[in-house]
Amino acid sequence: METINFVYNLIPDQFIAIIVICTIPLIFLIVYALLAILGELKISAWIQERLGPMRTGPWGILQPIAEVVKLIQKEDLTPDTANKPLFNLAPFIIFMGAYASFAVIPFSRYFIPSDINIGLFYIFAVGSIAVIGIVMGGWASNNKYSLLGAMRSVAQIISYEIPGAMAILSVAVLASSLNLEKINIAQEGGIWNWFVFGGQGSWDKLWVVPFTLILSLIYLISSLAETNRTPFDIPEGESELVAGYHTEYSGMKFAMFFFAEYANMFVVAAVLTITFFGGWNSPFGNFMQGPGWDVFWFVGKSFFFVIVQIWLRWTLPRLRVDQLMYVGWKVLLPFSFICFLFISLFRMIN
């Protein structure tokens, strides 16, 4: 009896609720990843005047499922000279970093998995875990290309966190909070009240609008670098490094890297939505506002930014390592400091 009691003590009343809350983002993430892969395939095809996948299902909409099935079927190779524990661990750590961010992302005012006060800070903190996974994978592969890719990736992600953080910090200044729910509530009441247009306020906020616009752009650019997307995809730059840090991975482990990349894309798009583009708020004030619409607006806006990332990828060439550093340290950082300065000034005056 005692042992059973012990188990019951371990399981609190909300146990089921916790499981549900944990799994809902995962289910969402899987559905989203399939949609995003389809989007990537189709948008790239249409941009290049191709039809894209057409065979699996009507207009090829089942293609992502076919790809996942293919990846599961593939042989899972581990190089002989690889450091096996680290090699096997790396994909999971990368995915964990991406998935942990979902703990604080508010899909709706009624569905916030964890309403902690330092939500923004938390996202940035767990987002950096991915670096460890990349270095682990790159080093453990025992491949020169992987190592070069991992080294580049570390330098890149660490440098681009600073301008990104400056952009987010100015939102924290405007909202006076790091809590994602409070940031969302602060942007209520139509498109003009979003932080990309300076947040709540009358016409005297007009002079701060350019700075918030630039900051949202800076966050978009640095988020591209953090997710290793073109034009900042040098860690995996396929023309030089074959596939960068995941050269040696195949099958399901490669799928984890792939999955994590798409999950990361959604996380940064969601953060951009929450911080600058009103989160769950409708652009039309109280019109189309409510718990159901919350999810619609939030997911819709995030998807839009995911599509922008895909669109950019199929338009631009990639930068070189030193140029990437130049853009990060000498362009984005000074601009974000200037903008941050003016936004703080604006906040002081009001």
Partner: peptide, 28 residues
């Protein structure tokens, strides 16, 4: 340079956007 970098990206995105809706050339 910063402006050029920004502007040419916009120009490129405009071209790819236009192609997004053009008639496709590949066949089944």
């Amino acid at each position: 340079n910063v402006w050029l970098g920004f502007w040419t990206v916009i120009v490129g995105m405009r071209i790819t956007l236009a192609h997004l809706f053009e008639k496709k050339v590949t066949v089944q």
